[in-house]
Simulated scan of single mutants.
Amino acid sequence: MSAIPKKKTKKGIRYTDTQKQEVIAFSNKWNADNGRGGQAEAARKFGVSVLTVAGWLKSGKAPKAAKVVKAAKAPKAPKAPKAPKAAKAAKAPKVPKAPKAPKAAKAVKAPKAVKAAKQATPQGKRYSDAQKQEVITHVAAVNAAKGRGGLSAAVAKYKVSPLTITGWMKKAGVATKPAKATKPAQVAKVKAPATGGLSAKAVIALGNQVAKLEKQFSKLKLMLGAIK
């Protein structure tokens, strides 16, 4: 038997990156317009198997679209030179402050008036013996005439304190209080005995009365002497 010669299979067609990109773009556009079926439609149109189209879509080997060469940037226009800053106006010189007026001198206080020295108080007035006797006599006369008030009358008339007048009266031996007026002692009537003589008892009674009268007479005599 003669051997059957094998049919020569066609080698796979090689697609350029541009062709692959065209297939991928068509498939994506179909899916975008119709929702699905882009791979099958691209395989039918370009005569490529569905698996090949799917491989191109999944693999990252699909060449990226050639970058558009950026146009050369135009050279920047040179910046205009800044205008020079205007010179600051010179500040006007400050006006000098007017000198302060000198403070008025404080008025000199007048010296305090020197207090006048206290004048020595005059010492107590001295009375002579005649003046003292005059005051005592005036006291006794008022007391003899009115029964009392001699001391007050002498104080008002001679401007002497009651204590001073009382002291003078004590030294002179004159009673400071007015003596009470005593009634004159009544002489007891002694009946003479029938025989014409006095009994011893009657004589004693008369002696006592005489003594009392003499005592009263002495007091009255002293008062009279003080008045004179």
Rank of each mutant, 00 (worst) to 15 (best):
P93L: 15
A32W: 07
K70W: 00
T182S: 13
K29F: 13
A141D: 14
G197Q: 12
T182G: 04
S49E: 10
L51N: 14
G173E: 10
G147H: 05
Q119C: 01
F217R: 09
W30C: 08
P81V: 15
P162F: 01
F46D: 00
K82L: 02
P184L: 13
K180R: 14
A154E: 08
K177I: 07
K189H: 11
S2I: 02
T18V: 13
A90Y: 02
K183I: 04
K177G: 02
A179V: 15
A113N: 01
K91E: 12
K103F: 12
E214A: 05
I24S: 07
K58L: 06
P81A: 15
T52K: 05
Q133E: 13
V68K: 14
E214M: 02
K79E: 03
K219I: 10
G60L: 00
A25H: 07
P193D: 15
S27Y: 01
A156M: 06
V23I: 11
K115R: 09
D33A: 13
A92E: 15
A202R: 00
V68Q: 12
L213K: 07
A43T: 04
P162T: 09
L151A: 04
K20W: 03
K132W: 10
G149F: 02
F46M: 04
G12C: 09
K70D: 03
K20L: 03
V95N: 11
A156W: 06
A202T: 00
A25D: 01
G150I: 07
W56E: 00
P122T: 08
A153N: 11
V135N: 02
K109A: 11
G196K: 10
A154Q: 09
K70L: 03
P162G: 10
I227C: 14
A42K: 05
A72F: 09
P84L: 14
A145Y: 11
R44D: 07
K125I: 15
R44W: 04
A181R: 09
A185H: 12
K8Y: 03
S128W: 05
I204D: 08
W56D: 03
G55P: 01
G147K: 02
V69D: 05
K100R: 14
A3K: 06
V114G: 00
A145F: 11
V108T: 12
K70R: 07
Q119W: 10
I136K: 06
A42S: 11
P193G: 09
A43Y: 03
E214I: 03
A202I: 01
A83F: 10
K106F: 05
G147I: 06
V95K: 12
V68R: 13
V155H: 02
G149Y: 09
P78I: 00
N28L: 06
V135Y: 07
V114R: 04
A3G: 09
A43S: 11
A80C: 00
K106T: 08
W56Y: 02
K146H: 13
K82C: 05
A205S: 01
K64Q: 04
V187M: 14
K6M: 14
A77Q: 06
K221W: 10
K146G: 07
A156V: 12
P78T: 09
V155D: 01
K221T: 13
R126L: 15
